[in-house]
Design a protein around this nucleic acid. Structure first.
Lengths: 256, 256
DNA sequence: TGACCGAATTCGGGAAATCCGAACCGAACG
DNA sequence: CGTTCGGTTCGGATTTCCCGAATTCGGTCA
C-alpha cells in the first residue's frame, strides 16, 4: 500500500496494539489466547492482560477459551451512524429501491478517505455475499466509491490517493491515477458510475452521488449479479430507481 | 453500583483510558481537545496523543477541532452482531411484529451479564425515543431483560447480580433481590414479562424469551406508550404477535 | 496592520506502566 | 498416572507514557 501519511508524531502504541488485537479477533472469527499470541507480536502474558481487560469492559467476550469481538462495539458503531445526518433521510428511500429492484441497495459515506457502508438493504433476490453494514472499502475500488470521489474537491482526492494509493483488488481495478481522473470526469458528466467486477468478480454495480448544495455527502448504489444486470435493465430500471431516490433524498436534505 | 468484580489482576490501563476516551466522545456527542481533557483525568498533551492515534486509525474523526466517534466502530459492531446466530433468524419475524402492531419491536441478547439490543424495528406509530441499535442495558431494568434473566441458570443470575447490583433507574425499578427472584418465578410460569415504566417513564413493554432447547438465547419485546398499551390490547394483540414470532424463531433455530 | 487571546501542538526529562520469560496450574487424554 | 497443551501468575528490566512548559497557530479586536 502506498501509504504516505506517517501518522501522529507520538502515537500511543498500547492503544494501537489494543485495536490491532480486536481487529485480529474479527479477521480470525474468534481465537484462543495462543492463536492471538501468534498473530500479534507480543508474549502470551501480555496478550492475556489485554484480552482480560477488554473482556472486563465488554469489548471482547470469552466463551470457553475462545475470545470474540463483543457487542459493545455495536453500541459505539450504531451511535456513530446516528451522527451522520444523511442516514435517516436515505434509509427509507433505499428500502424502496431494494424492494422495487429486488437487488441489494447500498448507502456509502466517506470519513477520513475511507468509504463506509452505513446501510445495506437486501431485496427479494439480492446476492447473498459481500454484504454487511459498516464494511469499509477503498473508494477507488467500487462504483459507489467512485461516485463519491468524483464529487470531492480535487485536492482532497489527491490527498486520499496519496494516503491510500490505488491497490488492486481484481483485474479490473483502476490502478493508474490518470485513468482514474479520466473516469471521475466521465462520472461527473454522466451522473452515474459503474463497476464491472472491479472489486468482486461476478458482481455489477450502478451508483450515483448524493449532493447537498455543492458538497457530496454520500452515494447510493444497486448491486446485482452480472447475469441479471443487463445494459437494458440498468438503463430502464436501475438508473430510474436511483435517480428517484437521489432526488427525494437531496430534497429532504436541503430543507432539514 | 454494587460491583463486586474486581477485574483483571493486571489491567492494561492505557487500553482502558483509550476506551474511556471514546466513550466520553460518545456521551458528549463530540468534543474538542480541551473538553476531552477536562473529562478524562490526563493532561492535554496526552489526550492529544490518544486522539491523534485514534484518528489515524479511523476510530475517531476530526472536524475542524471537534473529535467524534468514527464509523470504523460500525464495522466491528455490525460484525459482532453477525456472530449471533439468533440475529438473522429473528430479524424478519420482528419486522412482521413491528408492522402488525405499529409499535417498536426489539431483540435483546446477553453477553457478560449485560443486555444488548441487537435489532430494533419501528412500526408505523412507534415511539420515537429510546431506540437505537446496540444500546446496552442492565437486565433487571426492563421487561425484555427480565424475560431473559428468568430463563438463565440460577447461579448465573446470582453472578450477574453480584457484579452489577440492582441500581434504580425509575421509581418502579426492582431493587430488592428477593422481589426480583419472585418476579422471575412469575415470568417463568407465565411466559411473559411486563414493565410498568421501570426504566423510562411513560413507556410500557411486553416481552418473552427465546429458547433453544433449555437454553435462553435472547428475548423479544414490543414497546409502546402507556396510553396505547391497554390491558386488553396487550392480551388480545401484543401477546399473540409475540407468541407467534417466538414460535417461528424457535422452530427455525431448532433445525438450523 | 498589529497585538492579543484561546486553543492546539511540540518538546524532553522523569516516573510508571507495559513487556517478557519463566515458573506454576489445571484439564484433557492416553 | 504421566504427559501435554493451554491458561494464569509473578517480578524485574526497560520501554512507553505522563505531564508541565514553551511554542505555534488561527481568529478577533483595536
Amino acid at each position: 500500500m502506498t501509504q504516505s501519511d506517517a501518522g501522529p508524531r507520538t502515537p500511543v502504541k498500547t492503544a494501537e496494539r489494543t485495536l490491532e488485537l480486536v481487529e485480529f479477533l474479527k479477521a480470525a472469527d474468534g481465537a484462543t489466547l495462543s492463536e492471538a499470541t501468534d498473530a500479534v507480536d507480543l508474549p502470551k502474558s501480555s496478550v492475556h492482560n489485554y484480552l482480560k481487560t477488554l473482556v472486563h469492559h465488554g469489548y471482547v467476550v470469552e466463551n470457553d477459551g475462545t475470545y470474540e469481538v463483543g457487542l459493545r462495539f455495536l453500541d459505539l458503531g450504531a451511535y456513530a451512524r446516528t451522527r451522520v445526518p444523511l442516514y435517516p433521510v436515505a434509509e427509507p428511500e433505499l428500502e424502496t429501491v431494494a424492494e422495487e429492484t429486488g437487488e441489494l441497495a447500498n448507502l456509502l459515506v466517506e470519513q477520513d478517505g475511507r468509504g463506509t457502508f452505513i446501510y445495506r438493504k437486501k431485496g427479494e433476490n439480492a446476492v447473498k455475499i459481500d454484504s454487511y453494514n459498516g464494511q469499509q472499502i477503498l473508494l477507488h475500488t467500487t462504483a459507489i466509491g467512485k461516485a463519491l470521489l468524483a464529487n470531492l474537491p480535487e485536492d482532497r482526492v489527491e490527498a486520499i490517493l496519496d494516503r491510500y494509493g490505488l491497490p488492486q483488488k481484481t483485474e479490473n481495478t483502476i490502478t493508474d491515477r490518470e485513468e482514474l481522473f479520466a473516469e471521475l470526469d466521465r462520472i461527473r458528466s454522466e451522473g452515474f458510475s459503474y463497476d464491472d467486477e472491479e472489486r468482486i468478480s461476478g458482481l455489477n454495480c450502478v451508483a450515483t452521488p448524493i449532493l447537498q448544495g455543492d458538497d457530496v455527502v454520500g452515494a447510493i448504489s444497486v448491486t446485482g449479479p452480472t447475469s441479471r444486470m443487463s445494459q437494458s435493465r440498468i438503463d430502464d430500471e436501475i438508473k430510474q430507481q436511483l435517480r428517484n431516490a437521489k432526488n427525494i433524498i437531496e430534497l429532504n436534505l436541503s430543507h432539514a
